[in-house]
Design a protein around this nucleic acid. Structure first.
Length: 475
RNA sequence: GUCCCGUUCGUCUAGUGGCCUAGGACACCAGCCUUUCACGUUGGUAACACGGGUUCGAACCCCGUACGGGACGCCA
């Protein structure tokens, strides 16, 4: 490993996203991953993934897979195979013992029960619940029998520890506020704060970008880096995302896990764009695609204040991205949703109709759920299910009108311009406004009162199907 | 309780001492467009948390207060 510190000769930027697989990847974690990804790409560096699965009680393989899937969905695939923290326990212990040998750490023979009492007493006396350092300078010869000691960092007691954070600026705390944290448990396993430092060092991470709930823990991590004489990475603590009411984001605020956003019909690029704009901006830019994001994103431009999740704005952006999306891709997604969520069997004829009408369908959808809903009529067969509003349109007079217009349509080429011309001619000949002709047709053709332009809808259905539906509705 | 961080329209934000009568976006309201619904378009309502300084001048700098968030585990 190079002994040139990054400050002297900037190393290639390496960032990492380090989730623990104790739940699905949620939207806050997704943004953290995004910022890590964007920063690494912006600087031409690497984006890595480390799975912090050392909490064997709560970590599961299913969650690990879920996180991997979610990242893939978002397009945030790491550049190297993921590192699993649980596989590195021996290395964490090794470093702890190195610190012990160097006099930077010491054995502590306190029992968990003893520590609990220490904390309770401190709180009762109005002091901070900190370890009092009782084994810091005590002779291990006095160790009680039968207690497996933990290893604690021998943290500096005077002066202050400073984190020069790329987002928060310089943040300092008096060392007297920090206690000697445990780096290796009595059973020989590492604690989180220690493992993170060892892994970040060994993975040559240059920039630690994470949620600001880790900010105050960073002081202790810095002390471990310093004890080992390792160069410090740069830190960037980004603010958390809150729910609409300002409290911690949770289930009751709506979708929180990335996979739920997929299920609710959000496009990954819309989610990424929305997430990026939460806490980051570039002038008045709102719609920023991946390439432009990489070009413009810099971690120092991230704001310090927490922001709230606004589903309305996400939905609006989703509409923007749906309109921009490729028609084949949208069709594929809609077909999938029709089969799985609407329980429709979609044959190739229906698929072709959906694909044909997609340029018009996507103009009026804000989510893939809406898009699938709006396309469903193309996959149905007569008799169509009628929405109440559509049924109300099909009055006896409307049915007569349908029979008349059907005759015209039967003699028309089913192309959009020809259909448009035929309908206009029919309306004029019968002294009606176009809308008076279009709405009954729409009801007959779609079973609803909302659809793309009636000419395009007719064309997508094709002459035989369109006439069959009109005939059925005008009976 | 102690320590750390934050605070511009309802929300996301622009703003780095004069360009601010505070700009944009979403949402909301009204109009236009129109073959329904969307899209688009025109206009409107709406914010510098509060109090002190510093300065010729403060949304911007400093200090307090209030409110919000986070951290204080042999969890991650």
């Amino acid at each position: 490993m190079s002994d040139i510190s990054p400050q002297v000769a900037p190393a290639r930027v390496r960032t990492r996203f380090a989730p623990s697989p104790t739940g699905q990847l949620h939207i806050g974690g997704a943004r953290t991953a995004l910022f890590n990804f964007l920063y690494s790409r912006h600087t031409g560096g690497d984006f890595l993934l480390r799975v912090e699965d050392t909490d064997r009680e709560r970590s599961t393989d299913a969650f690990t897979q879920g996180i991997l899937d979610s990242l893939a969905w978002l397009g945030l695939t790491p550049d190297e195979p993921p590192v699993f923290q649980s596989t590195r326990a021996a290395r964490h212990a090794e470093v702890a013992h190195e610190m012990l040998a160097a006099g930077k750490a010491y054995y502590c023979y306190c029992t968990p029960e003893e520590l609990r009492q220490m904390r309770e007493q401190a709180v009762a006396e109005g002091r901070s619940p900190r370890y009092d350092g009782r084994w810091r300078d005590r002779d291990p010869a006095e160790a009680p029998a039968g207690v497996k000691p933990s290893i604690r960092l021998k943290a500096p007691r005077d002066g202050e520890t400073v984190v020069d954070d790329l987002v928060q600026g310089p943040v300092r705390v008096a060392n007297a506020e920090l206690d000697d944290m445990i780096i290796l448990r009595g059973d020989g396993t590492p604690t989180y704060l220690h493992a993170v430092v060892v892994d970040d060092h060994d993975m040559a991470i240059t920039h630690v970008i994470r949620g600001d709930d880790h900010l105050t823990n960073t002081f202790r991590q810095v002390q471990v880096f310093q004890a080992m004489g390792w160069p410090l990475p740069r830190f960037a603590h980004i603010p958390l995302i809150h729910g609409a009411d300002g409290s911690k984001l949770s289930k009751r605020h709506g979708a929180v896990s990335v996979m739920e956003f997929d299920a609710q019909g959000y496009l990954p690029e819309a989610v990424c764009n929305y997430l990026m704009r939460l806490g980051w901006s570039h002038g008045d830019l709102e719609v920023v695609d991946r390439d432009e994001a990489i070009r413009l994103f810099d971690i120092v431009d991230v704001n310090r204040g927490a922001s709230r999740m606004d589903y309305a704005k996400l939905t609006n952006l989703n509409g923007v991205y749906i309109r921009k999306a490729d028609d084949d891709r949208l069709t594929k997604d809609v077909l999938r949703r029709l089969i799985h969520q609407h329980d429709l069997s979609v044959g190739s004829i229906a698929a072709d109709r959906i694909r044909t009408l997609m340029p018009h369908l996507k103009e009026r959808a804000k989510s893939m759920l809406e898009l699938a809903q709006a396309a469903a009529f193309l996959a149905r067969v007569v008799p169509l299910p009628m929405e109440p509003k559509a049924a109300a349109i099909l009055t006896p007079e409307a049915r007569l009108l349908l029979r008349d217009v059907a005759a015209d349509l039967a003699a028309t080429d089913f192309t959009v311009p020809a259909l448009d011309a035929a309908l206009r001619a029919f309306a004029e000949r019968t002294g009606r406004k176009l809308g008076q002709v279009a709405q009954p047709l729409r009801a007959a053709l779609t079973g609803s009162t909302v659809s793309p332009g009636i000419d395009a809808t007719l064309a997508a259905l094709g002459k035989d199907e369109a006439l069959a539906r009109i005939a059925d509705a005008s009976r």
